[in-house]
């Protein structure tokens, strides 16, 4: 098993980078979507409607399909000359285009999931908070920025971490567009040697990261529960 360790670790390092960049972007994109969805008044109804349609669509399509559509779509549009090369075949920071296609798919899909988590958090903030902020003359945007969102995010850290674990595992889908991440490496080794130890090693590496994350989720939930259930034996 040891002979493959270096290769598998190199693959897992891509997995880590995909999940960190994709995770950060999905967290930000999800928050933007959630805030757009909460815009008040009749004037913003089209924005709310579009946001809901987006969230429904991206949660309803398998991420693998989204990934293949981005990969095929952007590549084809670039080949036709419809869009410039830096968009069609992105290679920012010297990373391969498959990396960025993967990041796009992770952000678009998990942004939609996380938007729903943020939304739950925003809706869990008591109505009186927005009333108090608006009664002081703060705009809807200021009230969201300084009062509602800071409280909402704190409430949803555990479910966001949960989604983050799912996102990390879904980076393995990016292997289908030849991203040399840990699953791709394991499969290559397996197909030439019929030895599954590289795959086993990959599974272990995932667990080394995801199990502590799962514990972290539980610890966060426990911490929140303690805050609310003080004094109950």
């Amino acid at each position: 098993m040891g002979e493959y360790f270096g290769d598998v670790l190199a693959g897992f390092w891509w997995t880590i980078r995909l999940s960190i960049v994709g995770g950060v972007l999905a967290l930000a994109w999800g928050l933007i979507l959630a805030v757009l969805r909460q815009l008040p008044g009749r004037a913003f109804a089209p924005v709310r409607w579009l946001t809901i349609a987006y969230i429904d669509a991206l949660r309803g399509i398998p991420m693998l399909l989204t990934l293949l559509l981005i990969y095929g779509g952007l590549g084809t549009l670039q080949a036709e000359g419809t869009i410039p090369k830096w968009i069609g075949v992105p290679e920012f920071f010297g990373y391969p285009s498959a990396f960025w296609y993967g990041i796009a798919a992770l952000t678009l899909t998990y942004g939609a999931y996380m938007a729903e988590v943020y939304r739950a958090g925003i809706e869990a903030v008591p109505r009186g908070q927005m009333e108090a902020a608006r009664s002081l003359g703060m705009s809807h945007g200021q009230s969201m920025r300084f009062v509602i969102v800071p409280q909402a995010v704190r409430k949803v850290i555990p479910p966001l971490l949960n989604d983050y674990i799912a996102l990390m595992k879904d980076t393995s889908l990016i292997s289908v567009i030849s991203m040399p991440e840990v699953v791709q490496v394991g499969r290559d080794i397996y197909s030439t040697t019929f030895n599954p130890s590289a795959l086993t090693l990959g599974a272990i590496m995932f667990l080394v990261v995801t199990i502590p994350l799962a514990r972290l989720v539980d610890w966060q939930i426990k911490k929140q529960d303690e805050k609310f259930e003080r004094g109950i034996p």
């Binding site: 008591p126 009186g128 908070q129 009333e131 108090a132 902020a133 300084f146 009062v147 800071p150 409280q151 704190r154």
Partner: peptide, 10 residues
């Protein structure tokens, strides 16, 4: 000023 105070807890 509200019955339920509505202070910002953050």
């Amino acid at each position: 000023v509200f019955q339920s105070f509505n202070l910002f807890p953050n």
